[in-house]
Design a binder for these strands. Structure first.
Lengths: 212, 212, 212, 212
DNA sequence: GATGAATGAGGTTTCATTCAT
DNA sequence: TATGAATGAAACCTCATTCAT
């Protein structure tokens, strides 16, 4: 296990032009505010105050509050998926591939802690095409994890309900934003090991009957 | 494992008087609306429409939107805790006790599916005393699970980080509201077994080094 | 100057029956609340809380908030006018008669300090017939004072604008509720003397040219 | 006695920019509405109707109804105090200085008749810091008058209770809004003379015993 | 005599958003 | 690019009042 692709230190796309830099700043503030107050509870005025840009000025960068959330969520999915793909490229062992997924997910979101909540907590607020698009990305991401788990399952001849197992794994990981405390719980590497142990120990146990 | 205490089929307190029945109805509608739109996204007008009672009339039953959420959340915690205590009374085996906890939690919230979200998703919207009170109940509930897990850990001589393990267990269980489909995923009993298997298999695996 | 008619120690009509006693209690609480919050700022709910009677129960005693204020104001005017008439009966000296008026007014309203504000401050909130009726009583009360002043004016051969003088006198007296502090300003007798001195000194000065 | 500083013909600050002009218009309408209905009885909707600006638009100019009243009252106190100071600069005779105060007060508030009520009648509705700030200005204004009266008292060797005398003077002047009718009562100059006569005659009379 | 339950209207304030500049 | 000014809709909540009991 030696992932090498770097964790982006920001929650927003790389930026070159002045426009891009401004947009990046706005998205960062928006993420922070959605994190604090939730999508519905956050107001564009809050964002205006936080970013120092006028209310009207913000609308030059996004066309609606919904689109704003969309852009943020889309970027998060795309970049964590990129990172996962990148890191999986170097690993072939089925178990390690699952561990890489877990570690990458945790590293990414523990490096951008507010993002984890904005993705998890505001999961179903987007409707229509926007919502469908995000749901699609989410499905791809799920599929990616499920494929890794299924590969391991096949390789080891395990027997368990993949759907429930994978969704439980996501539950463990996505719930973290409600309790994670860096001083108490250690870094992503530690957490990934612990959670990976529970998960893998759990599915491996389906080989033999569990100890009485 | 033979829990016998019945699952309340409603999300609200038992009701006798006309007042209680009306209140119960309102809380039920409110739960449904908080489920659909989230606390912030739900409006008292929505509740008025759904319950068929006038806006002003609703305020006869609760003094503020906040208090309304508070009453709902408090009732949920108290009644699931009651149920857990009730059912644990009959069980002494450490592993079974953990399984009873998982099953009870899932049975309760799968019987009241909207409640699970209202409890999980609107976890931190209550502030001040109200928020502190709910946080306190949550802590008790967590403590209850943690004690069961620690008892099992001691009984079997296992070695793992209890905090992370228990919080992961809650992650698996509380995440369910985002994906549960009764037609696909079976009932609470099945789900409780699967999740219990993963969790218990996971922590049992800490006895011996995990298989390579 | 020896007024003898007693100052009613209450702001409400004498009460015999249970109904009357209840009504009296309600009017007293209402006066207190109108005093504290003003007519517009006071709510029937405030009155309900203060009086310990249910919202609906109050309406057995008065038919509307307007009528409630009306009853209070009417009673105040009638009883202070009664008192004035009573005490004037014993006095014939024109100056003393003016002084009796001032003293009675101040004694009455300093004994019922909240009433003074409810009468002065909520002077023009009543509309239509109710308002006209109160305005009529007020006019009578004004007329009474004006007659006393005019009698003195004639008796002493003074020259001044009666209207402005009398209204100024009322200004001095009715403004008291904004500043009166019993510990600092003494009792009604003292205040009546001081204000009487200013007023009478002022109008007497119209005999001779004022000192340079 | 020849005061020369001009009376502002408006109740609101001078305005230059478009924003200032709009704000001035709003404050003027607000003063009129507070005059008509009282602070509590006036609604922002009333103001919206009167000013022709949308409800929400108004909030661009003030942050709350309370702040709105505050701005109005503060401006009134500051500008009448300015005017008084300005005019006192040219006068040294103690009696004339008192007369200048009376005249200025009346000229200012008779030129802005609604303001007088908004200042007098809504005296104690502002709470906390806002209320304390206004109370402070009021105290300064009172102090100013009291100093003039005390100077006269000392100059003439008079003997009377300054507090009661000054507060009575304010009573006479501030009560005017309840009865003033320009067609009947003449202009500020006339009224100031009459009220000044009563007041000064009254306190001068404390030199010698009043005529029997 | 008194209340619990309910209501329509309206209160203040904030929302996301727009448009001329 | 960015803002100041403005808006219609809707937010939460309270109002005076009623009516069956």
């Amino acid at each position: 296990m030696s992932p090498t692709a770097p964790i982006p230190d920001s929650t927003v796309p790389n930026s070159d032009s002045r426009y891009d830099r401004q947009l990046a700043k706005i998205l960062e503030h928006a993420t922070a505010i959605f994190y604090e107050k939730g999508y519905e509870g956050a107001s564009i005025r809050d964002l205006s105050r936080a970013s120092g840009m006028s209310l009207a000025g913000l609308y030059y960068y996004f066309e609606s509050k919904e689109k704003l959330l969309y852009v943020i969520q889309r970027h998060l999915f795309l970049s964590v998926m990129d990172l996962v793909r990148e890191r999986l490229r170097e690993e072939t062992d089925p178990e390690q591939r699952v561990r890489v997924f877990i570690l990458t997910h945790l590293e990414y979101f523990l490096a951008n802690p507010k993002s984890m909540k904005v993705l998890s907590h505001e999961d179903d607020v987007l409707k229509e095409e926007l919502g469908a698009d995000i749901a699609n990305l989410k499905r791809q991401y799920y599929r990616c994890a499920a494929d890794l788990v299924d590969a391991l399952k096949a390789a080891k001849g395990l027997q368990f309900n993949s759907r429930v197992a994978v969704l439980s794994l996501f539950g463990m990981m996505n719930w973290i934003y409600t309790w994670y405390n860096p001083h108490v719980d250690g870094d992503a590497k530690l957490l990934a090991r612990e959670i990976g142990d529970v998960f893998l120990g759990g599915i491996y146990a389906t080989l033999a009957p569990p100890p009485a």
